[in-house]
Write a protein that binds this DNA or RNA. Structure first.
Lengths: 306, 306
DNA sequence: CTGAAAGCGCTTACAG
DNA sequence: CTGAAAGCGCTTACAG
């Protein structure tokens, strides 16, 4: 009899109703949310892949929430996680714009929260991030080692943790080398292509323009390249360039990009791992996982020139 | 009284339970699934963005399913859509591997189905695709116009519709120009980076290697560039190159890429639009939306050389 | 160990 | 128009 029921279920392609499961059960939910600040940012493509792969392995289903830099949209998706009775969520918050209290509320409702690359609610939640200061430090130190004294930086949005960290790495590398930090060489590109385009032009127009440039993320590197092309500035002959974030195309650029590579896929996997641990042990102390970045030296920094 | 209840709901941050809503209601579900064959393929990044933006505007929530080329994983996610009581799903199927009957079953359960770039179940469902034949035709015709007689092609997986269409465009352009189609110049790169790497080496090793190359997608172009670099083949001086799919980095490659640009963001938006229409009119005849591709001429084709 | 009952939070159809 | 009741498909606690 049991056999015949199971056989019939198979035949009719019976699928247990997950909405009913989640509604009834307090504990079992196989839904997790992934809130990323913008899918147009190549940085997240590989993060999403890491999350998606490990989630699939653990039968967790993924709701992708493309926050797209909008606080309103972030709020909407946080509400959604609640009303969908998600088991947990992985979020790269809109940093200082984000209300940490809302995350607390969600946790009180039994939703596991894992943070990616943020200073929001730091220490109160599990989180994974990469060592932005160290990465930027190594990138800029490399430029210093090549003899550059006037090194500019196109930074990310002022006040956002990753931007601050990378800026600190830049400062530390200069200070260590005894090079004074010149505020005129620090330009905010707002983590956007257009912002970096403007910032780069501004740096080039300085009375004493930089001989080298550090750009704090991938999207901005695109804007910088555009500005350099418009002005006919050759890389690395006239300007040495180091970026942040590596993508598959980096080696094939007109000047193959020297850049600080983040372990993005690992960030995604680690976030899911933290989530799984939190689901298993809801009361464990929050974990802070820091992954290392490494410098990939190609040609845009001018390393091969001397 | 009514006011006071609403006030309390706001205060407690009440969110209607969507699992209960979907469970109870036969019609109202705001969940849609997006099954893409691989998030590592840059082609889909902008498709996902188009879907995500329009879905958000219409209060549809997105479950991202990264099928990753695995039929097993595709089945898993189709089952999931059923058990989540999704309103609909947008799928780029694993083409001839996919079981069209499963899609029929899901439709019978009241799930709206929209296809992207496939020949599976063609004509029986709403679908959106781009004119791959026309795109490849224009790309190859451009190479012919520049004087090339031996033009190779790194094709996508044999049997998959998009690959076949693009190959047909290649054939048509040659035939039109009175150039015989030489099967030795047609190499299957399986829509993968490594496959394209192999295919490109094979073409270069031909007794009479091609003077120009057409590559049928973005991922494969990466493999081709790698192979060309290994062999020290200069683009466009020694080999003219035309790709398929445009990405933000294309202009900044060592030889800025001439490529067939697909309206990927529009594909995503159009898919959601079809889904919305289907939800509103379940019995309307299936729509087949074909979007045009256009050739972006940069330098890798050698257009500026003569 | 097995089986019937209660109930998760909604929507919908129906009685007043 | 308003309000109470039934029920979506499960899980869980409890009686037999």
């Amino acid at each position: 009899m049991r056999m015949r029921v199971l056989e019939a279920a198979r035949k009719l392609n019976y699928q247990p109703d997950q909405t009913a499961q989640r509604l009834r059960s307090q504990t079992t939910s196989s839904l997790i949310g992934l809130l990323i600040s913008g899918i147009n940012n190549a940085h997240f493509h590989s993060v999403v892949q890491g999350v998606s792969d490990l989630a699939y392995n653990h039968q967790l289903n993924l709701m992708l929430c493309n926050v797209d830099g909008s606080l309103e949209r972030e709020r909407y998706y946080l509400d959604l996680m609640q009303s969908e009775r998600a088991a947990g969520l992985i979020i790269n918050p809109q940093d200082y714009y984000t209300d940490g209290q809302r995350l607390d509320e969600l946790r009180r409702q039994g939703i596991a929260v894992v943070l990616i690359d943020t200073s929001v609610a730091r220490g109160r939640f599990d989180q994974v991030r990469t060592d932005g200061r160290g990465g930027a430090y190594r990138g800029v130190r490399h430029l210093v080692g090549l003899g550059h004294q006037r090194i500019g930086i196109v930074t990310g949005t002022t006040g956002i943790m990753t931007a601050t960290e990378r800026l600190n790495g830049y400062r530390d590398a200069l200070t260590e080398a005894g090079i004074p930090v010149d505020d005129a060489l620090i330009c905010d590109g707002r983590y956007e292509k257009d912002g970096a385009h403007r910032a780069t032009l501004q740096l080039l127009d300085l009375p004493a323009p930089p001989t080298a440039l550090f750009v704090s993320n991938e999207l901005m590197t695109l804007g910088t390249l555009e500005a350099l092309r418009e002005r006919g500035v050759r890389v690395p002959q006239e300007l040495a360039l180091v970026g942040f974030d590596d993508i598959p195309w980096s080696p094939y650029l007109s000047s193959p990009l020297t850049t600080v590579a983040q372990p993005t896929y690992a960030v995604g996997r680690e976030a899911v791992r933290l989530l799984l641990r939190r689901l298993a042990e809801p009361d464990a102390p929050p974990l802070d996982v820091v992954l290392q970045n490494h410098l990939v030296v190609r040609e845009s920094c001018g390393a091969g020139l001397r």
